Computed example of a mutant assay.
Amino acid sequence: MTLQKQVLFWLGALVAVILLVWLLRGMLLPFVAGMALAYFLDPVADRLERVGLGRLLSTLLIVGVFLLTFVLVVILVGPLLTSQLTAFIERLPALMMSLQQLFTDQNREWLAPILGDRLPDIQKSLSELATQGALWLVASLRGLWSGGAALVSVVSLVVVTPIVAFYLLYDWGRMIRAIDSWLPVKYRDTIRELANEMDQAIAGFVRGQAGVCLSLALYYAVALIAVGLNFGLLIGSMAGVLSFIPYVGSLTGLLTATGVAIVQFWPDWHLILVVVAVFAVGQILEGYILAPKLVGRSVGLHPVWLMFALFAFGYLFGFVGLLLAVPLAAAIGVLTRFALRRYLASPFYTGLSRTVDASDGTDA
C-alpha cells in the first residue's frame, strides 16, 4: 500500500469514528465512564495480582470497594449538596439583586462623585441585566437538575458503568495483548513508544489532577464552612471539582464565594477578606505543593490546549466529550510532537540529502 493510500485509509477511519461518536453520544456516557474507570484502576488490579490475588478476585475487590465508597459519599454528602444546590438556585435572583443594590444604591457617597447624573441609568441597566441573568441561570439549572434525559443518564451511569468497568478491568490484559498483536510489524516499536508516551501523559495528568481536585474540594469546603459562609459546602466542592480545568475552578469559586460573602457579611470587610484569603491560600497550595507533587511537569498538556480541548469536545459531544477531551488532547499532543520531531529530522527541513537526528543534529 502506498503512503497516499495509507493516509487516505486512516483519515477515513478517523472520520468514521468521529461520526460514530457524534451519532451515539447520547448513550455512550456509561460505557466511556466504565472504560475510563477500568483504565485508571488497572494498576491497582496489577498490584493485587502481584501480591497473590487472582484477576477475578482483584477485580471484584476493587469494584466492590469503589461502589461502597461511592455509595457512602452519596449517602453522607449527597443530601447536603442537594439541599444547598436547591436553596442556592431559589435564592440566586435575590442574591444578585442584593449585590446589585449594594454597588448602585444612590446613597453610596463613594459612587456619586464618580458617576454623577448617570448613576440612575446605570442602576437601572445593571438591575435589568442582573435580573435577566439570574432568571436565565435559574432556568438552566432547573432544567439540568430536573430534566428527564439527565435523570435517565444518571441512572444508566450508576447501573451500567460498574458492570462495564468490571468486565473491562477483568479482561484488560488480554485486550491489550490482542491489540498489540494486530499492530503492523514494521511500525510496531514506534507505535508502542507512542502509546507508552500517551499512557504516561494521560495517567500522569488525570490521576494527579484528580488528587488535586479532591484535596482542593475538601480544603475549600471545610474552610468556607468554618468561616460561616452560606452554601460553603456547595461552593467549595464546586471550586475543587472545576479545578480540573486550570484556573477555572479557583476563579469561579472566588467570584461566587465573594459575591455571597458581600451580601451576607456586609459591611464587615474582615470576613469578606477572610473568604478571599481562603482562595489565595488555595492557589498557593495548588501551585506550589499539590500540583508539583501529584501532577508534575512532564505530562505535556499546556493549560490553554487543555481548556480548548475541554470546551471543544464538550461542545461537540456533550458530557461524553468532556470525558474524552483529556485523553484525546494528550494523544494529539504526543502525535504532534512526534510529527514535529520527524519534520525536524527530514530533508524537507534540513535541506540535506540524508536525514538528521532531531535530538542531537547528527546524521541518522
Rank of each mutant, 00 (worst) to 15 (best):
L119P: 08
I176G: 08
L3H: 07
L80A: 12
M27D: 04
A330C: 10
A112Q: 14
R337Q: 14
L111W: 11
R297G: 15
A195T: 08
E49A: 13
D189A: 15
Q101T: 12
L81T: 05
V206D: 06
S346E: 06
V7R: 12
F244D: 00
Q264S: 09
A94C: 04
M238V: 14
V212L: 04
M97A: 14
M96G: 11
G143E: 09
L271K: 14
F313Y: 09
L85G: 01
E286G: 06
L56H: 07
E128H: 12
A45D: 02
L85W: 07
T362E: 09
W266P: 05
G116I: 11
L137K: 02
A217C: 09
G34P: 07
L8T: 10
R354E: 15
P113Q: 03
I122W: 11
G351M: 08
T161K: 01
L111I: 15
A345F: 02
D357I: 09
F31N: 03
G287N: 15
L324W: 01
L81I: 13
D42M: 12
Q100W: 10
D171H: 12
A280R: 03
L214R: 01
V17Q: 06
T104H: 07
G318H: 03
G318L: 08
K186R: 13
P292M: 10
L194Y: 00
G333E: 02
N107M: 10
L324E: 04
P303S: 08
L216H: 06
S181W: 11
L119S: 08
A339H: 09
G351V: 05
F231H: 08
T350A: 03
F40M: 09
L316W: 11
F31D: 00
L28G: 01
I332N: 02
T350E: 03
V278Q: 02
S359H: 11
V304N: 01
S237E: 03
F265N: 07
S153N: 13
V159R: 09
G133T: 05
G249A: 06
G232K: 07
P162G: 05
P162I: 03
L151D: 06
M175Y: 12
A178D: 03
A165R: 04
I289R: 00
F313T: 03
C213E: 04
Y187T: 15
V274K: 09
Y219I: 05
